[in-house]
Design a protein around this nucleic acid. Structure first.
Lengths: 262, 262
DNA sequence: AAGTGGTCTAGACCACTTT
DNA sequence: AAGTGGTCTAGACCACTTT
């Protein structure tokens, strides 16, 4: 193998060849020359065009995929990603008027977009809470102190978010809070009967790359981070009675908070 | 070259060798066997251990870097990333009591952490607004209708967030809003004098991978998304008078919103 | 000087999709 | 059958850091 050819003449500048190729493609995408849905030249064609090895062209494409600009489809090609941010979760999703089954805001948003909505109750189980949940729900971290309800949300059968809701075991035991169908107005209806009127909420928001498990469950392409919301519901006494972890795919989801300034 | 050795015996399972190596390392990190700050075995050592080519070991490490679990340092090695989420931007950052210079919440948070705070005013210029800004500020999108103030925020000289603030040119022209030092209570003080009392706010939140420019400005390692907040300030008449785009590095930043439920 | 990651070559076989 | 991305080999030279 001719390894003195490592730096071919064509890599004139300071930049590595893979970055230069990526830059040309990036400009083409940003200028609109390559439009959402368009196919990029194949890795072999790019390699030819730039007098590089296929792996070098491939590295260029990988850089773009990491930025979330393109998505590869095995056997088909690499495509410019469609910029579609479909779901907007507003702070009004907690409003009392949107309370029936706790699910309405999602269904409403799906309908607004002409999509079908589906919510799967994946599991309902007594568990030991993760540390961050235990702190916020104010329960023992090393005890079977919570009920964990896991739901998956789909729009047109495409997964959009995964929600883990945690409730106090002592309150949920033997009630409809342990059932998939939790009755009128959903879990918040039952929690209100237990004396917890949702009076204020606290949402803590982070972004991070998905775990391999989340990548699988949400069907995430590379280069798409997740939005994680740690939600705490506080009652009339300012005490937490429900904590949920929302994991959204960020290419489909945005959050909106509207609030008065004091 | 012996290309029939492409699939060596050691890749026993269904999984590609690079993924298997990544899984072993991931488990070691999650179990705490490899702790934050620890160095991974070098790519050459991993390749030896698993009877693979160096590029295969390298691919395994790349998968972990993409998940944000490790960071490579040229010439030094690959290290398990420290999980430090330092900055919490709460919805109370808009509260009137935190108004002086508009910067106090950031300075407070930095002091709380024993870090120095620095805010650079990078530019103040009359510009054509981006489409999303024009819509929210309710100004002409294809006109020099706004003033754009760009600030960079540093903690211990490490960049934490980039903020672009947009104001109406017709209101800012010839006022302290065009100056780096915008006077008592910062730009919100001047805007209040112009008849805009901040009465409510709307924050729209997205996550995405950074652009190459943001990667450079924020000094982002691979595998770290950004949190983007599109902030709109509304006055006593419910009219927008200021729109800002916050770009936070998500490994250092979290957002918190506390609000009453109606 | 030795070790590390960064980039690259020039192939190969595989899984998948399209013609 | 032809084309595409996915993975891999066995090298090489480079830039950077540590010994």
């Amino acid at each position: 193998m001719l390894s003195r050819m490592t730096r071919p003449e064509s890599s004139g500048g300071q930049q590595p060849a893979s970055r230069r190729i990526a830059e040309v493609l990036r400009s083409a995408i940003q200028s609109g020359e390559l439009r959402p849905g368009d196919r990029l030249p194949s890795e072999r064609v790019l390699a030819d065009q730039y007098g590089a090895a296929r792996n070098t062209a491939r590295e260029a494409v990988r850089l773009l995929a990491e930025e979330g600009l393109v998505v590869a489809q095995h056997g088909r090609g690499v495509f410019v990603r469609e910029a579609r941010r479909l779901f907007r979760f507003g702070s009004d999703r907690y409003a009392r008027k949107n309370r029936e089954t706790g699910l309405t805001p999602f269904r409403l948003e799906a309908r607004r977009q002409g999509k079908s909505a589906r919510i799967d109750v994946v599991s309902i189980a007594r568990e030991m809470p993760p540390r961050d949940i235990a702190e916020r729900l104010d329960v023992a971290p090393d005890d079977l102190s919570v009920v964990h309800r896991e739901n998956h949300y789909f729009a047109d059968d495409e997964p959009v978010q995964v929600v883990s809701t945690y409730l106090r075991w002592e309150e949920a035991e033997g009630t409809l809070l342990m059932e998939a169908k939790s009755g009128p107005d959903g879990i918040y209806g039952r929690l209100e009967e237990l004396g917890h009127a949702m009076t204020s909420i606290r949402d803590e928001i982070f972004a991070r790359m998905p775990t391999p498990h989340e990548t699988a469950v949400l069907g995430l392409p590379p280069g798409v981070p997740v939005l994680e919301v740690l939600h705490t519901s506080l009652d009339q006494d300012g005490r937490p009675f429900e904590v949920s972890r929302f994991v959204h795919r960020s290419d489909l989801t945005g959050l909106t908070y509207e609030l008065p300034v004091t």
